[in-house]
Structures are given as C-alpha cells and as structure tokens.
Amino acid sequence: MFQNQGLKAIALFEGTKGVFVLLVGFELLHLLGADVQNSSQQIVHHLGLDHGALAGVFRRLLDQISNSSVRMMAVVALLYATLRLVEAVGLWLARPWAEWLAIISGSLYIPVEMYKLIQHPTLIRILITLGNVALVYYLIRRRRGGRSNLSPSQPF
C-alpha cells in the first residue's frame, strides 16, 4: 500500500497540470468568434502586464493573434492535457507504461530546464529542475526495482 504513495503523489501532480491546461484550452476555445485582440488585451491589462518594460512585447504579440492561432493553441493545449491526464490515471493505477511515459516525458524537460537555469538562475527554476530530476530519478529507481539494468520488468 505504501509503495504506491509516491506514484499517487506524482499522479495527482500530473493530473493537476492536466486539468489546468485543459481549462486553458477551453478558455482559448471560448475566445474563438470573439474579438481575440480585445479579449487578449483585457487579460493582459487585468494581469497588469500592459505597463513597464514588457508592454511593447505584449502589444506586438497581441497584434499577431488570430482565430487560427488561438485554435491551434487550444488544440495543442487539449492534446497536452489529454496526455497528462492519461499519464496521471496510469500512474494512479501503478501501470508500468505510465511510469515509462512519466520517465520519458520528465526527462525531455530536463535539458530545457537546465538551459533556462544556466541562462537566468532563479530560485523557482532551481526548485523546478531539482523536482523534475528527483521525480525522474524516483521513477527510474522504482522501475529498476533494485536491478542493475534499466529494462522494464513488465513492459506494458
């Protein structure tokens, strides 16, 4: 029972990410048919991002937003959310394929996180990178089950 608590914690984390991105995807779909530039400008204004050094960057980005780009972002968000939610359910049920999926997807982020950390180190980037490395390490150790090789005991 206690051996799956780590997996369940990771499943909850991945599921939370999936739900969050799913909500973002639905919100993007909600923008379709509306005045995308106006809606986006209202969001940027509400977040207080329309003043200061980044204001020009946000204005240029908002000028380039179209219904087709919003649709594409929504599709990508929904696909990503689906992957995270499927992974979360698989981890919750302690399925080996879900562990391998989490190892692969988590490992893909590490080089990007390291690059960002080297370019502009912040406490949050350090914590994210260390957390992801720890998560991948935990899952690899779990899959190895004390063996010296990385071959899965139950491939699928």
Rank of each mutant, 00 (worst) to 15 (best):
K8I: 08
A11Q: 01
A11S: 07
L12D: 02
T16E: 00
K17Y: 03
K17D: 01
F20V: 10
V21P: 00
V21M: 04
L22P: 00
L22A: 09
L23S: 04
L23E: 05
V24H: 00
G25Y: 00
G25T: 03
E27K: 09
L28A: 02
H30P: 00
H30T: 10
H30I: 07
L32C: 04
G33Q: 06
V36F: 01
Q37M: 07
S40K: 07
Q41K: 12
Q41F: 01
Q41D: 09
Q41C: 02
Q42K: 13
Q42S: 07
Q42R: 14
I43Y: 01
I43L: 12
V44K: 04
D50L: 06
G52Y: 02
G52R: 06
G52T: 05
A53I: 10
L54K: 13
A55R: 08
G56I: 06
G56M: 04
G56A: 07
G56R: 08
F58L: 11
F58I: 09
R59W: 00
L61H: 03
L62Q: 13
L62N: 15
S66R: 08
N67R: 10
S69E: 08
R71K: 10
M73H: 07
V75E: 09
A81P: 01
T82K: 05
T82L: 15
L83W: 04
L85E: 03
V86C: 05
E87V: 08
V89M: 07
G90S: 05
W92F: 11
R95V: 03
R95Q: 13
P96I: 02
E99N: 03
A102M: 08
I104K: 13
S105H: 05
S105I: 09
G106H: 07
L108C: 12
Y109Q: 14
Y109G: 11
P111K: 13
E113Q: 15
K116F: 08
I118E: 06
I118R: 13
P121F: 09
L123I: 14
I124T: 14
N132T: 15
A134N: 10
A134I: 10
V136P: 03
V136W: 01
I140T: 13
R144C: 13
R144G: 05
R144Q: 15
G145K: 15
G145H: 11
G146K: 15
R147D: 14
R147G: 09
N149W: 06
S151P: 03
P152L: 13
S153H: 14
